[in-house]
Design a protein around this nucleic acid. Structure first.
Lengths: 223, 223
DNA sequence: TCTTGCCTAACGACTGTTAGGGAGGCAGAT
DNA sequence: ATCTGCCTCCCTAACAGTCGTTAGGCAAGA
């Protein structure tokens, strides 16, 4: 691929990095996400993105400093925004079971609502520079650790039964990330339906599906 | 990307397609898998693959008709060989629980043993032509359907408790494919350990984790 | 003599990116 | 009310390099 030599045009770059027309930017990110999804980051050129946006390739550099920035913006839609939306659920109101169910529903719903970005975030991370990669992975790890802590606390409280909460967190995330690989809007299940069912399955996975069986550990709460 | 115009050199292509030196071929596929994993299919050029194999780019065409064939061979290691190895387990000896456990262990173990190929198969399918893509997806669907049928039969037999065996098959596969995204050889868990734990979690997921709780449906077999 | 496995050289197309300019709109000065 | 200067958003043209692939040849072994 071509070079990105350190130019004296620092001013130009700084301006392009600072959002100019925000809605136009979001529009272009959406177009790029779709193409990255269809053909992969390296499989799509700036000229192809530009053509899909009915613009010239060079004009993209008015909004974004580089192709990588276009990718990063796509990925933020998933990794940054998901954590911001979801973490409050774990610290919010309700029983551990209720909160886990809300988390899973929100997670699967987010996949359904941001399909292109999820696809891209799932397989194009390696195209990011180390610096940006680290930034994105901090969000991921925060989400993962928060879920691990939550499952540990829920087990402590007798609502779940996880031998190894950290591993259970990975297993739950592996499962609920799965629909990103196969779910399609015109498939057998609507996304809300799928989210509800996966929530129930996630409860099973962490030993929190109490109703049909009795609790594994002594608990004080009724029912 | 460059063209693949219909050439009159059909003979050359046919010869390259028929395996020549099988072990050399496998070696080159291994090198290609590794690079595809690290940088993505479109992120790696034939010259880079050649250099890693200590060869000239043009020489690769002595063994493979095209770059796509190199990718296809990488993917076969997963999608074709996995199905061939694993399907007999489902039709083999043992209780449903035992067979599911063997399947999960084999699946996770296969990921650990073929990391590069799994990574590539997980995210570079779109680079295949429709024709080859369909071929690969037939294997995937066969695996998925076989697991769905198996879970339905196991539920019928009272060993599992799946409301929707097809969906449970997807959930189990989503979970056990997960380690492909994050497992590393020098991590906290050895692959065999992880395989054993994920097998136990998969049993939970399908309602087949009898020992700590009593069976949900009437069964005759002891314990 | 034929095959295998590699080589050098070249093709045309495409890569990310930059330089530089032009049209239109808006703010402030005259 | 008009002019001036700046900012936004887009353009054309070009750069140096890389892409997948093919043609043609050469040395070693059967």
């Amino acid at each position: 691929m071509a070079q990105a030599q350190a130019t004296p045009a620092r001013a130009t770059r700084a301006q392009a990095t600072r959002p100019r027309n925000a809605s136009r930017r979001a529009e272009l990110v959406g177009v790029a996400s779709r193409l990255f999804r269809e053909r992969g980051y390296h499989g799509v050129g700036m000229r192809a993105i530009a053509e899909a946006a009915d613009i010239q390739a060079a004009s993209l550099y008015h909004h974004f400093a580089s192709k990588e920035e276009l990718l990063l913006e796509s990925i933020y839609v998933v990794d940054r925004d998901l954590v911001v939306d979801q973490l409050p659920i774990l610290e919010g109101e309700g029983t551990y079971r209720e909160r886990l169910e809300r988390l899973v529903r929100g997670h699967v719903g987010h996949i359904g609502a941001n399909r292109d970005a999820w696809w891209v975030a799932g397989r194009e991370l390696r195209a990011l520079s180390r610096e940006k990669l680290d930034e994105v992975q901090v969000y991921r790890r925060r989400y993962q650790h928060a879920l691990g802590d939550f499952l540990a606390a829920g087990t402590e409280a007798g609502e779940f039964a996880c031998d190894d909460p950290r591993l259970s967190a990975l297993a739950v995330l592996d499962m609920i990330n799965g629909p990103n690989e196969w779910w399609e809007p015109d498939g057998r299940l609507a996304i809300d339906e799928l989210a509800a069912r996966y929530a129930a399955l996630a409860l099973r996975l962490v030993g929190g599906d109490a109703p049909p069986r009795q609790a594994r550990k002594r608990r004080s709460s009724a029912r």
